[in-house]
């Protein structure tokens, strides 16, 4: 529902039509407009160019532009749908849509699979999982001996890699996630349910009739 004065023309946000974006996602047009307010803040935090670069993404996540985080970097790469090193508004909305509480579980499972498919081979491979484990443990306070890491990987792949070919395919991942639903916890952002409340300034800027 448009909340502002309609001028009888469609307003484009970052060259994206909010009505079209809403039709492709779980968001309403008002919610897409609200997300544009957030996008403008993040995309202008370092360079005001209407695009989010990795530094701005990490800064928005951690309020600290120097923090190294492999997981955040991986999420950025998945948001960067066109592989240009930046996230435009369309990428931002379509990617955040995955994290909406109402988005089907299947979409969340697919995104989480890509998150762990580090080399984009179409499989979650043991070496990629170990690489993520080592990088993240190195960044955190949590310390584990290599022997313990190998044991955890053995146990994980024994359970997840049903055909024991050394890698996890999408069907095996779906099965594993269904037995370990906590893995999808990070794939839902309750904030997205109340996005128009969190960013009310769109009310004054809206020119879109829904």
């Amino acid at each position: 529902m448009g909340c502002g004065p309609s001028k009888g023309r469609r307003q484009y946000l970052g060259n994206e039509d909010p009505v079209f974006l809403a039709s492709q996602t779980t968001f309403s047009v008002s919610e897409v407009e609200a997300l544009f307010e957030l996008f403008k803040t993040i995309s202008s935090s370092v360079i005001d160019d209407g695009l989010i670069n990795k530094e701005e993404f990490v800064l928005a996540l951690f309020k600290n532009r120097t923090k190294e985080n492999l997981f955040a970097s991986r999420i950025f790469d998945l948001f960067d749908v066109k592989h240009r090193g930046v996230i435009d508004f369309g990428d931002f909305v379509r990617s955040l849509h995955i994290f909406h509480p109402n988005t089907p579980l299947e979409d969340k499972i697919g995104f989480s699979f890509k998150l762990y498919d580090l080399d984009n081979t179409g499989f979650i491979e043991r070496k990629g999982v170990k690489q993520m484990l080592l990088a993240l443990l190195g960044e955190s306070e949590m310390k584990l001996a290599d022997e313990a890491i190998e044991m955890i990987l053995d146990k994980t792949f024994l359970e997840a890699d049903i055909n024991q070919d050394g890698k996890i395919d999408m069907t095996e991942w779906q099965h594993f996630v269904s037995k370990n639903p906590s893995l999808l916890k990070i794939m839902t952002l309750p904030y997205l349910r109340d996005i128009t409340t969190a960013f009310p300034s769109f009310v004054f800027n809206s020119e879109v009739d829904e």
């Binding site: 957030l38 996540l61 170990k130 955190s140």
Partner: peptide
């Protein structure tokens, strides 16, 4: 340690996209 590798990755990353929404609105 009774966690699988992916639980540890999620936990140790401290990853939470809600950071995008905090202090930005």
């Amino acid at each position: 340690l009774n966690m699988n590798a992916f639980d540890i990755i999620s936990l140790s990353s401290g990853f939470d996209l809600s950071g995008l929404f905090e202090e930005n609105n």
